[in-house]
Design a protein around this nucleic acid. Structure first.
Lengths: 175, 175
DNA sequence: ACCGTCATGTAATCGGTTACATGATTCT
DNA sequence: AGAATCATGTAACCGATTACATGACGGT
């Protein structure tokens, strides 16, 4: 008797990058890797950046596993266009429904230097500058989002704004 | 005529993990991978965590490139012990001296879900809980550091504490 | 025509993670 | 004595980054 179970198309680990792709494709309805690149750069990229090459490999992986549908255009470039499948949609929404258990790390190169004894006077000014620039960018985008129905991105930006303000305060006090 | 330049022992990219190892080894004077694991878990790990397996491979890489000296003990376990070389020290301190240009990303799984439309009511409570726990841990460690000469770690913790407070505020307001 | 930048994609490499393994201690 | 946890290490895999390439298009 054969006890092997039915294996789904492919077993793969879903990483944050996977969910980013799934999320963007669902939002867009249909997208080529290059579209994804532009969407990501203008939105999630601020929170969680992705290399453009991965926006080619990751959708392919997801398609092979049945989360996305892949369609190749016939003409010249033969671009690939992706759309989300029912399975993909289910996976995405159940990910959204369960609370995130993992905690984020700071992973700030500036802080790392500080940890190992870098001179605060030396690095603080640049850090202030960096975070202020980020803050300004966030606020600009946030303003552009007012009145739209993009609630998620708007809220996320607000979190980012608070984070930048906190860091600016920290480095200011140091300098 | 031969134009090849003198090549250093090995060309390798120094990643944050490299500097963490260099920094810890310099601080400790001498350390085995297992030592590094313990040091990291108790200190930098809060800011930038590292898998323990990498604390075996990374020192080996660094040693091959001349940043660390590797010594194998003769007895039973034949453990490897690392210490920093002059080259390693130079590299570390010049890294410390130049300001960090790259900016840190939030990379918070909770925020990522929020971005893609997760229900705030659903995830906010857990996020508050997570960040409060982190905050408490940081404050405990910070208290234990008072009066020591570990300036870098102390300052870093203060940054972490501010960051946690900012996030707690954000998620509280959401809920 | 030429040059630079944007558009679009593939290939190769490697850092980092996960999985696997086994000896030593401590606890019950 | 057996179980559980700590100590210590290697192997394999793979996601992510870097490098490489070429076509289209707008400006000079």
């Amino acid at each position: 008797m054969d006890h092997r179970e039915y294996t789904p198309l492919q077993e793969l680990r879903l990483t944050p990058a996977s969910y980013i792709v799934l999320g963007l494709v669902e939002w867009a309805g249909t997208a080529t890797p290059y579209d994804l690149k532009r969407y990501a750069a203008a939105s999630v990229g601020n929170l969680w950046s992705i290399q453009h090459a991965q926006l080619y490999s990751e959708p392919a992986r997801l398609a092979k596993a049945g989360y996305l549908k892949e369609k190749r255009e016939d003409g010249g470039r033969r671009r690939k266009t992706y759309s989300i499948t029912a399975r993909g949609r289910r996976t995405l929404s159940s990910w959204l429904a369960e609370p995130a258990s993992e905690t984020a790390e700071l992973r700030d190169p500036g802080l790392l230097k500080l940890f190992f004894g870098a001179d605060p006077k030396l690095i603080a000014p640049q850090q202030v500058e960096i975070h202020e620039r980020k803050l300004a960018a966030y606020e600009r985008i946030h303003a552009g989002l007012a009145g739209t129905d993009l609630r998620g991105p708007r809220l996320t930006l607000e979190a980012g704004i608070r984070a930048q303000r906190a860091q600016i305060g920290f480095w200011r006090d140091l300098a």
